[in-house]
Nucleic acid binder design. Structure first.
Lengths: 289, 289
DNA sequence: CAGGACTATAACCCACGGCTATAGACAACT
DNA sequence: AGTTGTCTATAGCCGTGGGTTATAGTCCTG
């Protein structure tokens, strides 16, 4: 095993393309190729497979990627420490945009102000978050997940219900709570159809025998509540989002409550800082309806 | 930076002797020598200095040793993980013999029985324990310390006073507590003169104007209490030791109470398991008089 | 002061790792 | 189907890095 193999593998894993990765590393493509092969031989695993013209990392390949990131990162960190630079490597936090805005803002603020810890934020979808964690591109993640890979440690840090956001003059605006069936025939504002929340709401409506009339698909909870405030329809949003002034928000029952989990790569991949931040997030968990 | 340099440096750091280390690594002495030199050049630090014929690691050298141990250990661990062996590397616990026997026995028992974590025990003096931690030879340590290096995290896990162990027919055996001055003229059983406890007791006696008549220097608290039970003198021991039947134990006042600390190498050097064990020890702390 | 133990440098030599060239695989487009 | 472009993988060549032995230099011991 050699450290330069690991470094090379990180570059390769990012592009899954020997030619480009080699260019980035300023070596020839064959040179990179044999490095990767030797790494795989040395570890006794196949790191990637061909799928037509595309190369895909195997499961072991992902693990090696994460390991390689961890190792090279530690070397850098150690170098800085020896050089007397107190700067610790930042902890990379990956989460959805809304999660960052409404769930993480406060705990991250206190975290940064408290110690002089540096963090780096990434706004990514839940799938990308899990991916980044597995590959070691991120250290801590937050996402609403049902199933978590075994190599990721997870703890709930917040549970949220669903809200219907409506203009004050809407017929349903006076209600204290709504059921899915109540939305029958309403014009709805939902997230784009490829997002999980969209499918969940549509499925619940169908099951309740209600007609789904999706008039707007908007990316981002704020955009949805904005359209609702313009009177274009009822926005069915996660209760994590703050309700803007000028609209009513009524809890919607009958949909699964969504639990956000703090995520941390298991094993030694997690630095002490990463683990500490993870614990901090867990400690400052909160629940809303 | 290369992993084989790190491996070589660990071997060198253990012996501080190029010739022997080279033999152990199955390379020639010059080959090892240039490896170490390149490692130092690469990091931009001097790793060791000559002191006459002896070589001594610099402060940076110690850090590099710890780092090297951590890195090579992680590679091994990762290899095992890839090979599907669930066996995690054992956490190495270094502490004094008595600490192991009387302070750590119970928390370590519950630790091992609870999860299926493996640990490896080392009985070493307090100085060796600190040393091993700094060099990465041990992961968790327990020792009674006044000052702790900055790069070691420490938390108190137990405070103990001092006991006088005496035969039942001794003039002082009826007393409920003793002061240092009461020991004036008594025959004393103490640890060897190079151990801290010896110096502490003698100094306290002198300060109190009492005459110290040390008849026996014995290594190990049990041996001391044994000699006391034979009527050879008053054993002045740490309250950590259990009192054997057939003797009286009277608290001795006026000596500093001794606080045992759990120790953990700071930074990434500590594996998750090591940190967990550290926390476990802290959680199961106890105090005695 | 001789001798032993060990470090450090010099000189040599081989093999490992990088390079170019190119065959092989695969998709896309005419 | 044939052509072309893109990329992986192997072959063969070549230079450097790392290993070896030999030995000078240093320091303590008897």
């Amino acid at each position: 095993m050699r450290l330069d193999w690991l470094e090379s593998f990180v570059a390769f894993a990012e592009t899954r393309n020997f030619t480009h990765a080699a260019a980035r590393l300023h070596v020839s493509q064959p040179a990179l190729h044999v490095q990767i092969r030797k790494l795989g031989d040395d570890l006794g695993v196949t790191l990637y497979t061909r799928n037509g013209r595309a190369l895909e990392l195997t499961d072991e390949g992902r693990r090696v990627e994460a390991f390689a990131r961890s190792m090279t990162g530690q070397v850098d960190e150690f170098r800085r420490m020896l050089a007397g630079e107190a700067e610790r490597a930042p902890v990379i936090v990956s989460a959805g945009r809304a999660t960052h805005l409404y769930l993480l803002a406060e705990p991250l603020r206190s975290w940064v102000l408290d110690g002089s810890r540096r963090i780096q934020l990434r706004a990514e979808t839940r799938e990308e978050t899990v991916d980044a964690l597995l590959a070691g591109r991120a250290h801590v993640g937050v996402a609403p997940l049902d199933t978590v890979p075994l190599s990721i440690e997870s703890r709930p840090i917040g549970t949220f219900g669903t809200l219907c956001v409506l203009p004050p003059d809407h017929p349903l605006a006076k209600r204290r709570r709504l059921r899915v069936a109540d939305l029958d025939g309403c014009r709805l504002v939902l997230p784009p159809s490829d997002r999980p929340h969209h499918a969940t709401v549509v499925a619940a409506l169908r099951e309740a025998g209600a007609r789904a009339d999706v008039v707007i698909e908007a990316g981002g909870w704020e955009l949805m509540t904005h359209y609702a405030s313009l009177g274009l329809g009822v926005a069915v949003v996660n209760a994590i989002v703050p309700v803007p002034s000028g609209v009513r928000a009524v809890p919607l029952q009958g949909l699964p409550r969504i639990t956000y989990h703090a995520l941390l790569a298991r094993g030694r991949l997690a630095s002490t800082d990463a683990r500490a931040l993870f614990e901090h997030l867990v400690a400052s968990r909160r629940h809303r309806d």
